[in-house]
Each structure stands twice: as structure tokens, then as C-alpha cells.
Design a protein around this nucleic acid. Structure first.
Lengths: 291, 291
DNA sequence: CGCCACGTTGAATTCAGTCAAAGAGCGTGG
DNA sequence: CCACGCTCTTTGACTGAATTCAACGTGGCG
């Protein structure tokens, strides 16, 4: 329960450099540093449509600012007024809500390249919290920058829209998981989802990636108790479907896992947008450039 | 599960006038008919920010076109390319997905004033279906109209964004329901949600409104079997919390129901946006008008 | 009248939760 | 350097909420 702002005994951790203030301003735009190639957002958005060189620049500039937070800290708390948008650059976080009875439901995990989130600033108060799981590096993005982006960069806007839609698709998939799948199916689905999302930002090695989650956190996501998560994990291990040690997960048999989850489709929409739509935004981009 | 395009034996029902074709074109825009005052969308969006007279006109024009569909018909099918956006003007529909094992998960119900949905046209194919529950009247809205709206009417755009966010909040709430609430809590929450959403578009009479859902449909929403839904409904009736007959639902004790669901907050964000954001879009609107 | 979808109820079953205890790993402090 | 404390994991025995299976009731409509 007393988990908010709790700080796990975790030894010397990177402390926050710029705790809560100083929103990005546009001054050091064309700074001398070369574009940091750690921009997972760029990588993710590229799945939607090929971005131009200047698009990359714009996005890299957006991601240039940086704040660090330790593990197990709430970045954004239920009931507060949302301050700004964050781009997660490294580490893992979660979007969750504490229930009055002490339970917790994790709605989604945030991984590098994810924005948390695009549009909360339209709301009067947060209806959930965002907390770190590992230490994270984030780029704070001001409301003004977002508005600027949507106003002047149609192709990026479209890609961001698409990304938001993908997130919504993930939310829907989770509803299906919780509503219609048993424990095995839920876990199998979640592991596949995390694999694919990590793959989309280049954080996988084949079917292997880092998964720094406790069984309690998995349970709070899947609507299961940690005890039961443990049992299902054991079953998966015994059936040689997965391997999970040292916080590293290998999916040994994705096909079977998908079958257990009852899914077979390109539900994450990595295919991008229909060609005519992509062309449309491309045209918008050129018109704006011509002016 | 031969339910798609299935058509319940349901007697003389309003048949479809324009079955599947003819997406809205802009020809009869300024038709002679007076603005239909049945625009639930306007009513819903007004909760966000006061709309101007011309905003009302724009929205009424958008809702002028009309198609009718009978009950139990899929308007939009999983796997197909989304055609256009619909504004639901009357009746009830649902967003759902059929599982390979024959199950069905309903993700949300669509009621008058809902758009289904804003942005699917960015995707290559639908990852779920939209089907009618009762006969419905919808206004088809073309991609061009949407783009036009977002391009030229900032205040309406902002209101639509807000409405989309509200929908997302509802999705999140459903995740919480399915993940962390027991059968009683889930049902209690769903009934409250439906009451408030109906109230927002003026379709309630106190705590009473029409609920044309079968227990099977409730179960497919809540992740429960119809049998169990029946039992929980019985319990609620016996505890004098609700009344449900002739497809009319009365919530006799909303407070207790909320308590059972474990919710107490203004989670639907009917409060609208923070004042400074509202002002911002207002200013945008004026700038555009000045040009 | 008889079909059909929907609602209702009971009894047996099962998946997941609860309670409890013990082990493993890690960092801290004596 | 080892012991302690902490969190996380693992396992077993028992419990319970919801499902399954099955039957019967009910109302509308052809």
C-alpha cells in the first residue's frame, strides 16, 4: 500500500538531475551535439511511415532534454493536474491505479519510445498514476512543443496519431485478455505483446529481451495473484515455452504461446497506415514546406 | 458463432435505407431542413466547453446525413478496411471482438452522441467489429469532413479530443473492472457508467433509463457468464439497489452501487478541460476567424 | 400452437484465490 | 566476514467465486 514515492532499497542509483522544473525551451535547438541515436521514438514511428531527415532532426531535438528518475517512484500521481508529457528514453515504467481496497491494477507498461502521454494535458486531473519500475531516463516535452509539432509537422503528427491508436489497440487487447482469457492465455498474451513492442524499438535479440518485472507486477497487470502467476510461469517453463532468469525472458515457442492466447493477427498494426493516407500526409507536409 | 450479419427474428423492423454504400458527400450541405435538435454530440461536447452558434451549425450539418441499420447487424467488421466514421444518433451499438474459441468480448457500448470512431481510418484494418444492438440511426462522416473539421475548427477539435480522451478513460476503467473487481463490482460499475453516459446526452429521467441489453450481452462485457449475471442481478434486485424490467433500468441506490464498485471519483472527466487550455483553443478559434 | 430467444434456478465442478511457510538473492551493518 | 533484514520466489493445503451442465419457465411472433 504505501508504495507511492516509495523507494526500494536499491543501492547507489542515478539520482535525478533536474527534479521537476525547467520545461524544454527552444533555445539550444541546433546545439552542436550530433543527433543522439538512442531515439526509440524515431524507431517506433518509422514503422508507420518513412520519416525524412528533417523529421528525424525535429524528433531528436525533442528528445534532447533529459531527466532521470530512480526506480519505484511516481512520476505523475492520480488526482494531480498533469504537468507535461514525457518521452521515455530508457527504463521501464507503468500506468496504474490503486484501488480503495488496497489492490492495484497496472494498465500498461511503458517502454522506451513511449509517450506518457500525448494528451493528458487536456484533462483537469489524472485518473491514474505513472510510476517507474526501473530507473528511467525521460525527455520532458512541454505542451507548447506538442502543439508546435501538431501545427507544423503533419507527417510526424500522423505518425503520432498512429502510435496513439496502436496504444489504444493495446488497451483493447488487454480488455480482451482480462475478460475472455484464462490465466495461461493472459500471461501468454502479455509476453507476446512485450516481445513485439520491444522488437519495435530494437530492444530484442531474437526472442530474448530484458523483463525487469516481479511476479507481483505481472499479477497486478493480469488480474491474477502473484502466487498464481508463479504457477503458470512454472507450467510454461516445464513445457519449454519460456525461460526467465536474471530478469531476462526468452520465448522459446512463440507459436504455441500465441495459440494459448488465441491470437494470430497483426493486431499491433505495425503494418502502418493505408497507402492513400500516408500519401495524404506526405502531401500536406510538402505544401507546408513550400510556403 | 454465426453472428455476423445475423439478424434476430425481431419482427417488422426499420430496414436499411442505404445499406452499405454512398459515403457522405458534401452536396446537400445546406439543405433546407432546420438544424435537427437531436444532436446528442453537441450536447455531449458542450460538457467540455461552451460551443458557439456557428459551432452548433457545423456539427448539425455534420449530423444531417442519415443512414439506418436494423438491430443485430455488423456495421464494421473485424479485418476489413474501415470505411468511414459514424456518428450514432439513435439506438445502441457495441464495439466487440469474437474470439477464436467462440467467445465474445464487448469492449464498449456506443450510445447516441458517440463516434465510432474518430480515427480508425488511420489503420489498415479493423481489429474489432462494431455491431448494432437495437436499430440505429447514424450519420456517416467522411474522412474529408473529419480532416476539414480538425483543420478549421479548433474549438470543436479540442472538444473532440477531449471526448476521445474520455473514451480512453472509460477503456481504462473497464480494465480496472475486469482486472480487480468481482462480479458484483463489475456489474455495479457498468450500470453507473451507463447511467452517467446516458445522462450526459440527456437520455435519463432521474436514475432511470432504457437499457436494451440481454444478460448475455452484459456477460460478454463483464467477462462473466450470463448465468452469473443473472444471479448478481437477482441479488441487486433483492437488495433493492436496482429495478430492471421491460428493458428499463432504475438505479435505486447509486451510492451503494458506487461503493460496491469501489469508485468515488469524477473519473469520466465531465469537468472538462483546465481553464487555460480552453482559453488557448478559444484564442486559436478567433485567430482563424480573423483571417 | 409451437418455435425461439431470453431469463431463471439448482447441483456439480474447477480455476484461481487465500493462507502459510520456507528458500534464494542481495545489500547493509555489526 | 558473516548475520540480519528485506524483497522476491516457490510450494502445499484449503477455500471459494464463478463456470458448466442441465432443466424449466416465459413471452413474442409466425
Amino acid at each position: 500500500m504505501p508504495r507511492q514515492f516509495g523507494q526500494r532499497s536499491a543501492g547507489p542509483q542515478p539520482l535525478l538531475e533536474t527534479p521537476m522544473a525547467r520545461v524544454a525551451d527552444n533555445r539550444d535547438q541546433r546545439s552542436s551535439r550530433p543527433p543522439p541515436s538512442d531515439n526509440s521514438l524515431t524507431r517506433k514511428l518509422s514503422h508507420f511511415a518513412p520519416l525524412s531527415g528533417s523529421d528525424h532532426q525535429v524528433l531528436d531535438r525533442l528528445a534532447a532534454q533529459e531527466e532521470r528518475f530512480p526506480a519505484n517512484l511516481d512520476i505523475s500521481v492520480d488526482g494531480m493536474v498533469p504537468r507535461s508529457v514525457f518521452l521515455l528514453k530508457e527504463g521501464m515504467a507503468m500506468r496504474y491505479r490503486n484501488m480503495p481496497d488496497g489492490g492495484r491494477q497496472i494498465m500498461t507498461f511503458l517502454i522506451p519510445g513511449d509517450l506518457c502521454d500525448m494528451h493528458v494535458f487536456l484533462l483537469k486531473e489524472m485518473d491514474h498514476s505513472i510510476g517507474t519500475i526501473t530507473p528511467v531516463r525521460v525527455a520532458p516535452i512541454s505542451r507548447e512543443n506538442i502543439v508546435e509539432l501538431f501545427g507544423h509537422h503533419p507527417r510526424i503528427s500522423a505518425a503520432l496519431w498512429w502510435s496513439a491508436l496502436q496504444e489504444e489497440a493495446i488497451l483493447r487487447e488487454r480488455i480482451i485478455s482480462l475478460g475472455r482469457r484464462d490465466a495461461r492465455g493472459r500471461l501468454a498474451y502479455l509476453l507476446c505483446e512485450l516481445l513485439w513492442r520491444h522488437a519495435a524499438v530494437g530492444l530484442t535479440d531474437g526472442e530474448v529481451f530484458r523483463l525487469p518485472l516481479t511476479q507481483t507486477e505481472l499479477g497486478d497487470t493480469l488480474g491474477l495473484t502473484p502466487v498464481h502467476v508463479n504457477r503458470v510461469l512454472r507450467e510454461f517453463r516445464e513445457r519449454r515455452l519460456i525461460t526467465l532468469e536474471q530478469r531476462t525472458l526468452s520465448l522459446l515457442d512463440v507459436g504455441t504461446l500465441q495459440a494459448i492466447a488465441g491470437l494470430n493477427k497483426d493486431y499491433l498494426h505495425f503494418g502502418g497506415a493505408p497507402a492513400d493516407i500516408a500519401r495524404y500526409f506526405d502531401r500536406l507536409e510538402k505544401e507546408r514546406a513550400a510556403r
